[in-house]
């Protein structure tokens, strides 16, 4: 269909076009809810069945890094909302600024996630043939990034967990399946979101967005906020199991 200015040929008015695009994104987000729903279900069943292993696995995650990333992602949602506001009020410089900030925060998130993933690879905590929940306890020399106090605590926890669940290694692997499955899927969505943000940034630098035409900022914003919501649930589900021990 031909495009006249900002209006695509299949639409009659800009308002109809905006309505359509927004509805389309919302419906897409519902499919995303169901997409994450499948793995949430697998998580729920296994967390309930193998609670000791899940608590054990959760306690090996760094609360500091996870919490920091939560704050980063919430902040990026805020800057994204501000980018939408800037577009709605035609503040062209601010759009670019807030989009850049959002991208920056997204990359901070990636960076922290990389550190966390690398550590898990290093500690043999990735599901598969090499998975070994006892790796660090048995080879403390190879896990020098864990300080002695933490290592002692971890050892104690693992011993207690094995008492409760003799098949800890297999079941802890289920926890890490959930961890990598869910955060990996979430990270994949962030990568897509970051790609969309770069495109918005390019358009924004070209000065395309204003009060009349800000559809793309708005609907990419919806997507970005959705990714944030997923993390809002992932953080307590993965990082905060049985922390009070």
């Amino acid at each position: 269909m031909h495009r006249t200015g900002a209006l695509y040929g299949q639409f009659k008015t800009l308002e109809q076009q905006k309505d359509t695009a927004t509805l389309g994104m919302w419906i897409f987000l519902v499919t995303e809810v169901m997409f994450f729903g499948g793995i949430m279900l697998a998580y729920t069943i296994n967390r309930h069945t193998y609670f000791h292993a899940f608590a054990m696995g959760s306690n090996t995650l760094s609360l500091g890094l996870g919490g920091f990333n939560t704050v980063v992602l919430l902040a990026s949602s805020f800057t994204m909302a501000m980018a939408v506001w800037s577009a709605q009020t035609s503040k062209k410089g601010l759009i670019t600024l807030f989009l850049s900030l959002t991208i920056f925060l997204g990359f901070v998130f990636f960076g922290v996630k990389y550190v966390e993933y690398a550590q898990k690879f290093h500690h043999h905590l990735v599901p598969g043939k090499t998975f070994d929940i006892f790796y660090c306890v048995r080879n403390p020399a190879k896990c020098s990034d864990i300080d002695a106090a933490d290592m002692a605590k971890e050892k104690e926890e693992i011993e207690a967990a094995v008492q409760a669940d003799p098949d800890l290694n297999a079941h802890a692997q289920l926890y890490y399946s959930a961890y990598f499955g869910m955060t990996g899927l979430h990270a994949l969505h962030m990568v897509i979101g970051a790609g969309l943000l770069f495109w918005l940034l390019k358009e924004s630098v070209a000065g395309r967005f204003n009060a009349e035409w800000n559809n793309p900022v708005d609907i990419v914003g919806l997507y970005w906020h959705f990714v944030d919501i997923v993390w809002i649930y992932l953080f307590p589900l993965l990082y905060l199991i049985d922390r009070h021990k």
Binding site: D19, T22, I27, L29, V33, M34, G37, L41, T44
Partner: peptide, 23 residues
Amino acid sequence: PERTKLVIIAGIFWLALLLFMTL
């Protein structure tokens, strides 16, 4: 608009169907 709210509620409802009926 109302229909956006309907979409959101439908999403939550179907997620609940998947989770609770399987559980």
